[in-house]
Design a protein around this nucleic acid. Structure first.
Lengths: 231, 231
DNA sequence: CGTTTCATGTCGACT
DNA sequence: AGTCGACGTGAAACG
């Protein structure tokens, strides 16, 4: 990985045409040839970039460019499309190269998955008499996290989220709509379960006759641990 | 902007929970406190990050962490949510800070470029006797959209926007300031041309002696088509 | 400020 | 390789 801090201007053409006026920026050249052009603010998205696979070539400025103070011209060309990024470098303030090696990558900890496991194991949290039918109950539009039956034999569909937002309620609503068309299942009641339920989501859920269940992760894990110790 | 290349591991919790195993990575701390964690490959998206507004605090590792080789602990906390990024730094290979200043940002040439072409072809829209000098007239701070001469031989710098906002007037003002320092060009008059000019922008432009020109895209394209048919 | 739509979306899973 | 859907989507335009 090469890091350069330099005054530069850039021109991108490909899916759109754009340019960056002269300013001081961070240029990152990754091992796979990809290039990022970052400013000192904004988000994680670069001002401009070229994704791999691509090839970078360093060239000399022509006379016109040199008269504008350009010292070096980088041309980054995508290998599979005609996307092209041209960077004109003026003064360079920093330039260093580093060997980073291969990255193991991000590992997403499935808190949601864990909550699902634990709620399946502690299904009585839904209410007395509830029994588990199955986890990841498949429907035409995707798997419902948990399908259960209540004490009276009615079906209960549970959607689990770490953070209970409106989107989750919408998702559960779609499932319920579909499942209630199935005479073998209907009527299906909905339960929206999450570690934290946003007020708006609670209002929407309640309005649609969906119950809300706040899950206490630590308490549930405690119960889980006790259960494990019994074996 | 601070650049650090270090062996590190990280843990993010917020909209999801995830972690990064120990590896050598680039850490970027931007002026607004945001943090990016990049590997030497992939795309422009960091492995992990924290968007502004957020606060970074540097701490000492506890005994357990120190025994694992942790030298420093960075805690990046989002100001408006409970999103949190914790980075454990082991060996540091590089550490440098740079003052980048404010970035003018990316300029997308979409409809704008087309308007520029058409105005260059119909330069008399600026007024009788006007002639085109060149498009994309290069200056130290970026290209002026159109440089023209009026009937009396005076220079005219034209800034073209799809939507004429205050930013565009500011940009043209910077160009004019620079160009009027060049004795070969001065005095340079400014014209702010756009499909639609916001009232505020018009007031500011007028106040600075910059003329406003509303461009009728469809009418201009009509003329363009007629021109094409002549050939 | 909330809401909706766009993106050089990116990214992964599956056909 | 092409398609589809989720994303820590983010970002800009709009009311």
């Amino acid at each position: 990985m090469r890091l350069v801090v330099a005054e530069c201007s850039a021109r991108y053409s490909g899916r759109l045409t754009a340019h960056l006026p002269l300013a001081t920026r961070l240029l990152v050249v990754k091992a796979d040839g990809s290039v990022l052009l970052h400013s000192d603010g904004g988000s994680y998205k670069p001002l401009n970039w070229m994704s791999p696979p691509c090839t970078m070539s360093v060239g000399e400025p022509d006379d016109e460019a040199r008269s504008r103070g350009v010292v070096e011209v980088w041309t980054v060309q995508h290998r599979k499309s005609d996307d092209r990024l041209e960077i004109e470098l003026h003064a360079t303030h920093h330039d260093s190269a580093h060997d980073l090696g291969v990255d193991p990558g991000l590992i997403k900890d499935g808190v949601e998955a864990h909550l699902q496991e634990m709620l399946a194991a502690q299904i009585e949290l839904l209410g007395d008499g509830h029994t588990l039918v199955r986890r990841e109950y498949m429907t035409a539009i995707g798997p419902v996290d948990i399908l259960a039956k209540d004490g009276e034999g009615g079906s209960v569909a549970v959607e689990i989220k770490r953070r209970g937002d409106i989107d989750g309620v919408e998702q559960l609503t779609r499932y319920l709509e579909l499942m209630n068309r199935d005479p073998l299942l209907a009527p299906v009641r909905g339960v929206f379960a999450a570690q934290e339920i946003k007020p708006q989501a609670r209002v929407l859920a309640t309005d649609r006759g969906i119950s809300c269940l706040v899950l206490d992760y630590d308490a549930m894990r405690g119960v889980d641990d006790v259960d494990s110790r019994l074996f």
